[in-house]
């Protein structure tokens, strides 16, 4: 018996749609760049001005705001893309397209894997674009790294992005298969993205948060993704917005573990919802 690679069929189909749906393809690639170009440049001039009187610590790199937030934009884009990645299942369900799949012998977890894999691919593409565009407009990613270090760092970033996106894609798939309308899904997504995005270290330091919000941000997968990206893109020890950041290897592994646990839990949730799903 050969290994069932049925999920690749689902993956193939979703990628066809991604490529063929020009507006979606275009907007998903351009949108993060616009974030960088407008929000990033506008905010960095402000933050950099506000922190000019903080004396730079000797011996460690002092990072501009654009570099700091570029990691956040990668994380944010991954979050949005992944959370909305399951939406396609809802459309499939409503347009009757999913009946073909549900009536086939394909095990249902393959639907989850297929959709998750294509969502992850999209996040990879977006992350690479943001990195390239960010460097282009002045983000100091991989400053002073040799070629091998750059490749290693990019792989590290993609590892974090990949696991994080799987978690939210599983969640998104679980929600999509349980709901009837795209409007309902849109509502839940909005409800989820706000706290996840703003109770994190994506755009600003969490040090000045009230204690409760700090606790929330420590349990927030987005914070751990950002930690991972900054570690690989900037380094383990730097100063940004007047604050000293130290990320040890242990910190990094803790962040990675949080993401893995989160993804596993979300897969459990999606698997449970799919076993119960009735699509007619």
């Amino acid at each position: 018996m050969t290994m069932n690679l049925g999920f690749l069929t689902i993956y193939w189909r979703d990628m066809i749609r991604f490529v063929r749906f020009r507006t979606l393809l275009f907007s998903s690639l351009v949108q993060p760049a616009l974030w960088m170009a407008f929000f990033g440049i506008a905010m960095s001039s402000n933050f950099n001005r506000l922190t000019t009187d903080v004396p730079p610590l000797p011996g460690i790199p002092n990072i501009g705001y654009l570099t700091f937030m570029a990691a956040g934009v990668i994380a944010m884009t991954t979050l949005f893309t992944s959370l909305f990645g399951g939406m396609v299942l809802l459309f499939d369900k409503n347009w009757g397209l999913m009946r073909e799949v549900m009536a086939s012998p394909l095990p249902r977890d393959h639907i989850i894997f297929g959709i998750a894999l294509s969502g992850m691919t999209k996040s990879f593409i977006q992350s690479v674009i943001i990195m390239a565009f960010g460097i282009l407009i002045g983000a100091e990613f991989f400053a002073g790294f040799g070629p091998a270090e750059v490749i290693f760092s990019i792989l590290g970033i993609l590892l974090f992005v990949g696991i994080f996106s799987l978690g939210f894609l599983f969640l998104s798939a679980a929600i999509a298969i349980s709901l009837e309308t795209p409007e309902g899904m849109q509502g839940i997504m909005t409800l989820l993205t706000m706290p996840i995005f703003f109770a994190s270290n994506a755009l600003y330091p969490v040090n000045a948060f009230p204690p409760i919000l700090q606790a929330v941000s420590m349990g927030n997968p987005l914070t751990h993704l950002v930690n991972g990206i900054r570690y690989f893109a900037i380094g383990g020890h730097y100063q940004a917005i007047g604050i000293e950041y130290i990320t040890t290897t242990t910190d990094l592994l803790v962040s990675l573990s949080v993401l893995v646990v989160f993804a596993a839990a979300m897969f459990g949730l999606a698997w449970w919802r799919f076993q119960r799903a009735v699509v007619t």
């Binding site: 069929t9 193939w12 086939s104 012998p105």
Partner: peptide
Amino acid sequence: EFHGCLYR
């Protein structure tokens, strides 16, 4: 093609 793949 998609259908054939679904049914392996």
